[in-house]
Design a protein around this nucleic acid. Structure first.
Lengths: 244, 244
DNA sequence: GCACACAAAATTGTCAACAATCTACTGGCA
DNA sequence: TGCCAGTAGATTGTTGACAATTTTGTGTGC
């Protein structure tokens, strides 16, 4: 009769627990890798056959992805990979600035040797990926750096929100990144570590603000990468304002 | 062949568009009014019969509520009204401090006469509710005040997140509010208006921080209101550490 | 009397068929 | 030819029945 909330059993392991979680992750990876391109339609039955599951499972995964704003669910029309516009991109990074400002302040004022080590270990992994030329790992680790800080801030609410925001950022970056990314993110992360352990919250917050602005400014928000199905851009025409 | 994202058709009107949205709102209201008490189990079929819809609809509403952290979805066990603990309460208000700090700064620096009027109009409604002794309207309007500020900050990402956070806050307040709430929230909102139009972002941010801390401190986090089904508290015993 | 195993009931999870909707195509008409 | 209505196909939305699981109830042995 008493409610036992218990934990929602969210095994994040790569194992085969919860098929729909597995599907969610596969699709997530495909979207962030641009194997599924922005605007592309996702047909339920095709995916169901591909993954060997029922349509209901696909639908459930859609709900999660839509919740993360990685796909658009249009009633009676279906699911489409999200196409965040310039405005949305700016708002996402603006939101991150607001939130991560508070995060770095908290982390800075509550820094401990153990936490500093955690950050340093993570940076080492980032450098390794950079050295190996592993582009995908670099992007993932780069996002997880920010997530680590949120975790260190000790606020689960913020952590969960930032996790979603980072996914959205990843899609935006995938859409708008410049062809030859200098991607000095790891350098900026180094600078952040210095600021975080420096003990000055204002300085750390400023450093994070600069970092996020830098990521945003490295984007080419007026030149989104054309996808294979993006005929409008491929042929240099816009379907709306088309003219001989 | 091209995707038309379109809008997700979120009619917020009280009409009968989208039955599951209607059900979501009904349950939401019941939870925040404590007609559905924290810890209470929600049986799908009972609700389905009550609302005259299929179980699937109820299930869909559950998903939204779980997403807002207003209910817990436990696999194979069912749905339970959330029981945010002390820790969670603190984290929610801490998160709001971080976010609304940025919000009020942005609103302050971009204040216009029109926006000030919008805020003033809202405060008038709050005072009216206070005068009428309409407790429910006061709580709702009090939350919407913060949401208005988020909207004025012009960031949809933040706005949506804060909306959910305010719902969570409402549940927490319903659980832990002191029996005789002085609830001078509207006075504090008056002070906020002054700070927001004062042009000093730091002052406005400090004012908001004080306000949120005050809300939190008015809670009796060590004395949650017992529900009808909360036997542990009713009988002054804890099921875990039970002893003759 | 208590603990355990077993059975019955209640509840949630899943799926596959059917209905509703949208898209693409065909053919007729001006 | 170009436009529009009507139709066939493809896709999404919904439901009800069935399977799996948990909870409750019962009885037996110690």
């Amino acid at each position: 009769m008493m409610a036992h909330p218990a934990e929602p059993a969210r095994y994040t392991g790569s194992g085969k627990l919860r098929p729909e979680e597995q599907i969610y992750r596969e699709m997530l990876g495909a979207i962030l890798d641009r194997r599924l391109e922005p605007g592309m339609k996702l047909v339920e039955e095709d995916l169901a056959k591909t993954f060997g599951v029922s349509r209901a499972r696909i639908r459930s995964a859609f709900l999660q992805l839509a919740h993360d704003k990685l796909i658009n669910l249009v009633p009676n029309r279906g699911a489409f990979i999200a196409e965040p516009g310039i405005n949305e991109a700016i708002e996402v990074f603006s939101a991150r600035r607001m939130i991560e400002d508070g995060v770095v302040r908290k982390v800075t004022t509550h820094m401990t040797p153990d936490r500093a080590t955690q950050i340093r270990d993570h940076l080492a992994a980032e450098h390794q990926a950079q050295h190996d030329g592993d582009h995908r790992a670099r992007i993932i680790l780069s996002g997880e750096f920010h997530l680590l800080l949120a975790r260190l801030a000790g606020n689960l609410v913020i952590e969960e929100f930032l996790e979603r925001l980072i996914l959205r950022s990843s899609l935006i970056i995938a859409m708008y990144e410049s062809p030859l990314p200098p991607d000095c993110s790891h350098d900026e992360h180094d600078a952040l570590l210095a600021a975080l352990t420096g003990g000055d919250p204002d300085a750390a917050a400023a450093c994070m603000a600069r970092h996020l602005d830098a990521i945003r400014d490295r984007l080419q928000l007026d030149h989104r990468k054309p996808g294979k199905t993006d005929f409008a851009r491929i042929f240099g025409r816009h379907p709306d304002k088309a003219a001989g």
